[in-house]
Design a protein around this nucleic acid. Structure first.
Length: 575
DNA sequence: TTCACCATGAAGCTAGTT
DNA sequence: AACTAGCTTCATGGTGAA
């Protein structure tokens, strides 16, 4: 059986997509290799300093020039200059400006190396505007090629006032210590016991190994807790000028197929460790959609996609409440400081609550007492209420939520779906712009379209994202338990005049190996396996059954893994 | 301490049917 | 009028991170 693309026009080099290319971090690559012998060429007076920076991966010429510019005394300034040089050197050829509206103007302004104000590496002020100094330091560390967790850990160790150089040193020191102890938390080559390689006969061993893995969770979770990076920007945001982060995937994680798994970031302790362990030790990418739209949505994504040359969907959505809903500005009281929404959930505020708020405010003109303000703001934050009149708040309408999440207007409207059901479906969905940004790297790889296996499809967030990216959907096998959601996808499929094939199935648990093999025989395999399994038992807002990954609904994650693993095996990478 | 969180389930409501 | 099914409303708390 030939599992290559049926069109025979997409021969991908699956092994090389994460190789350090021209866009990879000089800091990172050299860091791993250790200081080079070339250090000796540096002048005697500068030698320790030059070695230090060359050890971080900067070229000798660059270091010498930076020292000359700043003098030897100010290491922090030298480092900033070096980062600027690195940015200038890499930007034009490594960032694909054709896909986004990234302007080179500010880069030109910085090209003399004197203006270091933009060290955070962002062109679009939108994204840096709200960031604290601490956040900016974090981003700088990431641009230097450090892993998000390394950066977070160093910032915890060194405190909020630590300078970049001190933080970088701290990370190096930690690495040295780890290597001396013979264990590396962030190592690309994890111990054998952690890996789970797909191989012949694996399907038979699946159940047994799954149980063993589950058992491992309790004992290992304490020693390798994943910390959530702050700011929650993942491997970078749109219009970020420097994308130097380079990650090396564990061998067993490399496709085909590509996979993309999503769930709530703030899951109970140990959950993401378990998910990551199952999904071939790929570390989650934590992203808050507040950087992509006007509503927060803290999620983690485990995927084996390349992270270079991502581009955002256009038009870029507005990121403040006032920009999205200009009419609310008229009624927005000065004492309500919100500029963005909290997470759009599956339930909305009751009419009684909005009435209680109206009554609480009716006796005051403009400035109610602080206790009233506090009460109203608290409820507004909790339920994402907007001001629609004097002293009058209201929950967001379903079509407004559709817009915020990046879906076409009326995507969930009609077809017999109730209003409550719309809220629930939307609350459970992807934020399309965020997911599309991550999936955008597939556009150049699959110019003729791709074959998608979409598990827990919901209202088709992944499908909509790929479509909006202009990626043709040759085949979509969508598995979704809810009939109304399946109808929504089918309706969208017809309305958008798709030319591919859509197959809708109801239950991931019923998707057997045989059925999967049959589908893959028909279509020649899948290029991408997307899924966001239920979060019911993980979400903080569930006060009844927050039972973790073993909960009734959330344990369906294991079906995502089971199916992905089957696809990997059938695609035959190791057969 | 404060804040946020893809929720749940019982009770009430409503439209349709007999 | 009585019944039913499906939908809406309402009240409810704990965990984890900063």
């Amino acid at each position: 059986m030939d599992w290559s693309d049926s069109d025979g026009n997409e021969v991908l080099d699956w092994e090389s997509d994460e190789e350090p290319g021209p866009g990879s971090s000089p800091a990172r690559v050299a860091d791993r290799a250790g200081p080079s012998d070339e250090t000796c060429k540096a002048g005697p007076s500068h030698r320790p300093l030059v070695s230090h920076f060359m050890g971080m991966g900067f070229s000798e010429d660059m270091v010498m020039k930076a020292i000359k510019e700043n003098g030897e005394g100010d290491s922090e300034a030298i480092l900033e200059t070096l980062l600027t040089y690195a940015a200038i050197e890499k930007c034009p050829e490594n960032i694909d400006h054709s896909h986004n509206n990234c302007s080179l103007a500010s880069e030109e302004n910085n090209s003399d190396g004197d203006d270091l104000s933009d060290i955070s590496g962002f062109e679009d002020e939108d994204f840096t505007m709200g960031l604290s100094e601490e956040d900016k330091k974090y981003l700088t560390l990431m641009e230097m090629g450090f892993h998000p967790e390394e950066a977070s850990a160093a910032m915890r160790r060194c405190g909020p006032d630590a300078q970049i150089l001190e933080l970088a040193d701290s990370i190096h020191a930690a690495e040295v210590q780890e290597s001396e102890l013979g264990e590396s938390t962030y190592s690309n080559n994890k111990p054998e016991s952690f890996s789970y390689n797909c191989s012949r006969g694996k399907r038979k061993r699946f159940a047994e190994e799954t149980v063993n893995k589950r058992r491992c969770v309790q004992t290992e979770s304490d020693s390798s807790l994943i910390s959530i990076p702050k700011p929650m920007v993942g491997y970078g945001l749109p219009n970020q000028r420097i994308t130097t982060i380079c990650r090396k995937l564990p061998e067993s994680a490399v496709g085909p197929p590509y996979f993309y798994y999503e769930n709530v970031a703030l899951a109970p302790k140990g959950v993401w460790e378990t998910i990551s362990r199952f999904l071939y030790d790929v570390e989650p990418e934590f992203v808050d959609s507040k950087y992509f739209c006007a509503a927060a949505r803290k999620r983690a994504y485990v995927h084996n996609l390349p992270i270079q040359n991502r581009f955002p969907l256009l038009p870029i959505p507005p990121k403040t409440i006032h920009d999205v809903f200009p009419t609310t500005k008229k009624w927005w009281p000065s004492w309500d400081p919100r500029t963005q929404f909290n997470c759009l959930q599956t339930c909305t505020a009751s009419a009684k609550l909005t009435e209680r708020i109206r009554r609480a405010l009716e006796h005051y003109d403009d400035l109610p007492p602080l206790t009233t303000q506090k009460y109203v703001i608290e409820e507004c934050r909790k339920w994402n209420l907007v001001w629609v009149g004097h002293h009058k708040v209201a929950p967001l309408e379903p079509d407004e939520i559709e817009m915020l999440l990046g879906f076409p207007r009326d995507h969930t409207r009609g077809g017999g779906i109730s209003r409550t059901e719309r809220y629930r479906s939307l609350g459970n969905s992807f934020q399309v712009d965020t997911v599309a940004f991550h999936l955008s790297v597939l556009k150049d790889m699959f110019p003729n379209g791709l074959r998608l296996l979409s598990l827990f499809s919901g209202i088709g967030g992944a499908e909509v994202a790929l479509h909006r990216l202009g990626i043709r959907l040759k085949v979509v096998v969508s598995v979704e338990i809810s009939e109304v959601n399946r109808n929504i996808i089918k309706s969208w499929w017809e309305q958008t005049n798709q030319t591919g094939t859509l197959i809708e199935l109801a239950d991931v648990q019923q998707l057997s190996g045989d059925k999967l093999e049959e589908l893959m025989c028909t279509f020649g395999g899948f290029d991408l396996v997307v899924g966001g399994s239920p979060c019911n038992n993980l979400a903080g807002s569930n006060r009844y059954h927050r039972d973790g990954l073993e909960g009734t609904h959330s344990s369906l994650f294991y079906d995502y893994f089971r199916i992905l693993d089957l696809v990997k095996c059938i695609m035959g990478k190791n057969i």
